[in-house]
């Protein structure tokens, strides 16, 4: 039996489409965790990245934070937080946010730094306020890179939220962890497929957002 057969069997079993362990419920949970963590991480990473990038200060501190954030193993952190704080949303959110902040922070900073300084100079020279320069001159140009940072963060969250099933969280990872435990490969492969599809949908979503939000004058390259 190969993987495709497992996938087929998993999705055609109607039992997988209902109830608290049904695909819609698990998918909903997974999306919910992802959005929560992403919003939290963006709320932390974006403002700091934008402001430090705009003023061009604190780059070294940011790269230290990023290195530290990357070095922390998310899976280990997940288990550790659960050990310390018990089961629940908080111990799961902490590693997800820790995971997602560095890419958002660093790419936003780099994106702002890579904006051509001459339009900024011109804008200042024509009497634009600093906040307006940030949002109307730098941000539109930095947007593609900033979005790619958010995209990395989102994809990493989707991926790590899967592992979170190990610490009794819901989401699509449940199928994989339970399936492995029950030696039910159909379930394992089905779950893996769903997670992969969700990750790809996330990718596509960000691509679509970039198409709409990024000015055609910036998009070429």
């Amino acid at each position: 039996m190969n993987v495709l057969n497992f996938v087929n069997a998993f999705f055609s079993d109607s039992a997988h489409w209902h109830g608290y362990d049904g695909i819609p419920a698990r998918l909903g949970e997974h999306v919910q965790y992802t959005l929560q963590a992403l919003l939290l991480a963006a709320a932390i990473g974006l403002p700091i990245g934008l402001v430090t990038g705009h003023y061009g200060r604190g780059g070294n501190a940011l790269s230290l934070v990023a290195t530290a954030g990357r070095a922390l193993p998310s899976f280990g952190l997940l288990v550790l937080m659960t050990t310390l704080l018990g089961f629940g949303m908080l111990p799961v959110m902490i590693p997800l946010v820790v995971l997602a902040v560095p890419p958002i922070l660093v790419t936003t900073y780099e994106a702002m730094r890579s904006v051509d300084p001459s339009p900024v100079d011109a804008a200042r020279g024509m009497g634009m306020h600093e906040s307006r320069i940030l949002f109307q001159v730098e941000l539109p140009v930095a947007l593609p890179l900033i979005l790619s940072g958010l995209r990395s963060a989102a994809i990493q969250i989707v991926s790590t939220a899967t592992i979170a099933a190990y610490v009794s969280l819901g989401g699509l990872g449940r199928y994989i962890v339970d399936g492995l435990y029950q030696r039910n490969y159909e379930k394992v492969v089905g779950g893996a497929t769903l997670v992969a599809v969700l990750a790809l949908v996330t990718l596509a979503l960000f691509w679509a957002v970039a198409r709409v939000a990024v000015s055609p004058g910036v998009r070429r390259r």
């Binding site: 994989i176 394992v188 492969v189 997670v195 990750a199």
Partner: peptide
């Protein structure tokens, strides 16, 4: 390829 979560990648390879 990078978007494929590691756990999903692992379990598909188990086969």
């Amino acid at each position: 390829l990078y978007a494929i979560p590691s756990l999903a990648f692992f379990v598909v390879l188990i086969d």
